[in-house]
Design a protein around this nucleic acid. Structure first.
Lengths: 327, 327
DNA sequence: CTGAAAGCGCTAACAT
DNA sequence: ATGTTAGCGCTTTCAG
């Protein structure tokens, strides 16, 4: 910057004004402005955003923290968050921490130490205390997808209970009466709500069997899912399952894979519903809950940026309604 | 930092030394050091990494630039790069630019402006000139997965030609003689090599049909793939295809989906091979090229960090050998 | 219309 | 064994 100033014969101040498009404000003559721009361009000058941020107090960078970036749902969310943030002039730093509290905390701190302006996080289990600490700090955070019902903070979520209730209702309407559910072994509300929706839907039908729920761990999802399905179908004389509801796309994928491998026909006698589209078995028409991931990403970014830019510590939470896809 | 210094009754320098674990070097008395640490902890002090980086000249941050983070291959690569970099004390910023040159350049600049120490990039078409500029700068970059044969720069790639050659050879050994290939319409070497491997394999068998190659665009992959497959099978009287080779996991997914939907049985009469595992049709045993994504990520990080830390502008390129999975 | 000067939070050579 | 000081590259107030 000094070098440009020298070449044009002005001070760094003037260069700064011009390069920041504040020529009006600085009342720089257009001829000087033009020369500065030209030299800057020729020298291929680029701001040192670090120095700039240190001075201005903001980085125009937000972080996105998810459990696993190689999961389809999160990867898609990341994609949309990034697109929308870029459009708003922000860079997004994606961090993938596993469903692992030990990695979560240091990562979040690392990000804050680097002075990101705010973050969107899909929280993992047992991190609630972290958030009460962060909230006290006043650091801008918005939760996406998963949330803590007791914490007053910005969040963008979907109506998990409603979606679950509706999709299970579909199964019931189509005649299923002995529906089992597979979900993740997770205390977080989004899972709890999905479970409640399922239970509630069953209650509408007195002739439906009691809820049968299997909880799968995050660590060995594929294997556990397989074994669960296997057991379920080897016990068909005690519980003659005729419907299966998967709480996530990942579980559905592994589950359907197993069904196909076991040669269990999916059809009127054995129906399936799940969250998220599964491209797994294209010729199977499986009704599913379509989560509006793009809107979720956009809403989260918008909420966070308005929080950052306007400094409004609003409590608003945005609840999106997923579509039920009947196919 | 000043606040801690005041409370303990020392200068900022002393605090800095202690908090950076350089008490030996600064010859700080252990009692003072202890007090400083205690106060820092109590006050919940955290470094401003921005200021630190401005001073030290490095950020301990690297960038990973990929075309589409919602693609399974890239998401997995991102995951491993992140894990390994974190382990080495680096933060990784993931940027997803689409197969879009217009988004590529500004994103890369944005990242460099933020002073990342280096970057790993999976280049996209028509960006070669960008790289010659960047190389001149001396900025540490390593290419992963895709590359430019004419550019002397660090890269971590796989033997695409060999993998392609071998997997197509499998198809031939199993009796296929009229094998078509689907690949992306991309000038980059990795695609060209995959194509060459296919052609070369066919040449070994004089009784095999000439190469039949379909190029699919990145924009409407799913739709184009569908139509291609449809056409291919509606023309079976002129070319009675008995084998299909997909150059990527994504193409394979869409292609197999279409085959299933069309009710075309996959078996001895119609065999398939592809790059990357497809979880799509679990009961189909499809031989595929298993790319060592984790090693690729690790190797790229290691190469980049040694370049950054040792400043060695080596030309070394690392060529990984994928496994051929026969199932 | 333009420049001097202060300072963002930190590090490190050099004093003491 | 600890403190002084001079920046890192930039923005912005205030004084010409």
């Amino acid at each position: 910057m000094q070098s440009i100033a020298d070449q044009v014969g002005v001070s760094r101040t003037t260069v700064s004004f011009v390069l920041n498009g504040k020529e009006k404000e600085g009342r720089i003559s257009s001829v000087v402005a033009a020369r500065i721009k030209e030299v800057a361009h020729r020298e291929n000058y680029r701001f040192n955003e670090l120095a700039r941020s240190l001075r201005t107090g903001h980085t125009r960078t937000i972080a996105l923290v998810v459990a696993d970036i190689s999961d389809r749902f999160f990867a898609t969310l990341a994609f949309h968050v990034q697109q929308h943030a870029l459009h708003k002039g922000y860079l997004v730093v994606i961090a993938s921490v596993g469903e692992d509290r030990a990695q979560f905390k240091p990562t979040v701190e690392m990000l804050i130490d680097r002075q990101v302006d705010g973050m969107i996080v899909v929280p993992i289990q047992h991190t609630e205390q972290e958030f009460v600490r962060l909230i006290e700090t006043g650091f801008p955070i918005v939760l996406a997808d998963r949330y803590f019902p007791d914490l007053k903070m910005n969040r963008v979520i979907i109506d998990n209970f409603g979606a679950s209730f509706q999709i299970v209702s579909r199964l019931l309407e189509k005649g299923c009466r002995r529906i089992a559910m597979l979900l993740y072994d997770d205390q977080l509300m989004h899972m709890q709500e999905r479970q409640k929706g399922y239970v509630k839907a069953l209650e509408k039908y007195p002739d439906a069997a009691q809820p049968v729920i299997y909880k799968i761990g995050y660590a060995n999802t594929q294997q556990e899912t397989r074994e669960t399905i296997r057991k379920l179908f080897s016990n068909r004389d005690t519980f003659d399952v005729d419907g299966l509801f998967f709480a996530t796309g990942g579980l559905a994928m592994y589950g359907i894979e197993t069904l196909i491998q076991l040669g269990i026909p999916i059809g009127p006698q054995m129906q399936i519903a799940c969250f998220d589209r599964t491209d797994f078995a294209p010729n199977l028409k499986i009704p599913y809950v379509h989560q509006p991931i793009q809107e979720m990403g956009k809403a989260a970014v918008d909420m966070l940026l308005s929080r950052i830019e306007k400094g409004e510590p609003t409590n608003e939470s945005c609840i999106l309604t997923p579509h039920i896809i009947n196919r």
